[in-house]
């Protein structure tokens, strides 16, 4: 039993190291998951920001949570891509015919998604600090933010797993992420929902991104968190459970 656990951990570390290498060797991935969100942030703060009335004196503070969610949504499309390529090229079959802890093949991708998104979130927060982002949040609030973002990443990662495991083409494997990347734009991430026409506003206020953005924003601003945090957690957990179930079905269909 002890060697099984030891092998499980070492196999997992190898799988994680392998796909982290994929990320660091792909300029495309690095640009999309870190530079693009930072470029968005620059654009919104220094070009559009002057015209946007959020009721806060510092637009970077208002904007950051939404930018982080966009970064995570772009990040997971690469998880789907890497999974799809592994399935297609036969590397999955090679691993599965070897005497290794089989589950590490899939979980390695999930762990990579969590770790790589954490790295891009940290880089984007550092860039925001340079642009004037300031937070009065204490350690506990930061931990809560980290927890919500990790849960959001995990939920989206399992959606990515469904796409990666069941897609027929590379384009199909990553296309699912576009609507998710777009969701923050129809939320309170960039502008308060008050200014939206009633139909759009109803959608914006009731879709998952708004509650997550509001919860993270309140935590970072050191404001009391309202109901939003529970709504955000419920959304993340709900998506996680449903996506995980379907991802496992897709996985079992592929693997005997």
């Amino acid at each position: 039993m002890e060697t099984t656990i030891k092998h499980f951990i070492s196999d997992m570390v190898i799988m994680l190291g392998r796909s982290m290498r994929h990320i660091f060797r792909s300029m495309d991935t690095i640009i999309t998951v870190t530079l693009m969100p930072i470029a968005f942030m620059l654009l919104f703060v220094y070009v559009f920001g002057g015209a946007i009335q959020t009721g806060t004196d510092n637009y970077v503070n208002y904007l950051l949570p939404g930018i982080l969610l966009i970064a995570i949504a772009s990040g997971i499309s690469y998880t789907a891509y890497r999974l799809f390529i592994d399935m297609q090229r036969g590397i999955f079959e090679r691993f599965h015919s070897m005497p290794i802890a089989r589950s590490t093949v899939l979980w390695g991708h999930v762990l990579t998604s969590l770790l790589s998104n954490a790295i891009s979130v940290i880089i984007i927060i550092l860039a925001a600090l340079v642009m004037g982002f300031r937070s009065s949040a204490g350690v506990l609030s930061w931990l809560a933010v980290a927890g919500i973002l990790a849960l959001f990443t995990l939920a989206l990662t399992w959606i990515a797993a469904i796409a990666g495991l069941s897609a027929k083409s590379v384009d199909g494997a990553s296309a699912f992420s576009y609507p998710i990347i777009f969701l923050p734009f129809i939320s309170s991430a960039f502008v308060p929902t008050d200014s939206m026409p009633s139909g759009v506003r109803a959608f914006a206020e009731n879709q998952p991104v708004t509650s997550i953005v509001e919860a993270v924003r309140s935590l970072l601003m050191g404001q009391p968190v309202s109901n939003d945090i529970w709504v955000a957690l419920a959304w993340c957990l709900g998506i996680l459970v449903v996506a995980y179930t379907f991802a496992m079905l897709a996985y079992k269909r592929k693997i005997a």
Binding site: I14, R18, R21, S26, G90, S97, M98
Partner: peptide
């Protein structure tokens, strides 16, 4: 050991890294 129909190698890694990965697994 299986050598599938399509070369099951990791394209992003080098030849040596591929072999070391399998040896470690």
């Amino acid at each position: 050991s299986l050598t599938g129909q399509f070369a099951a190698v990791d394209e992003v890694l080098t030849g040596r890294e591929n072999l070391i990965m399998i040896a470690r697994l």
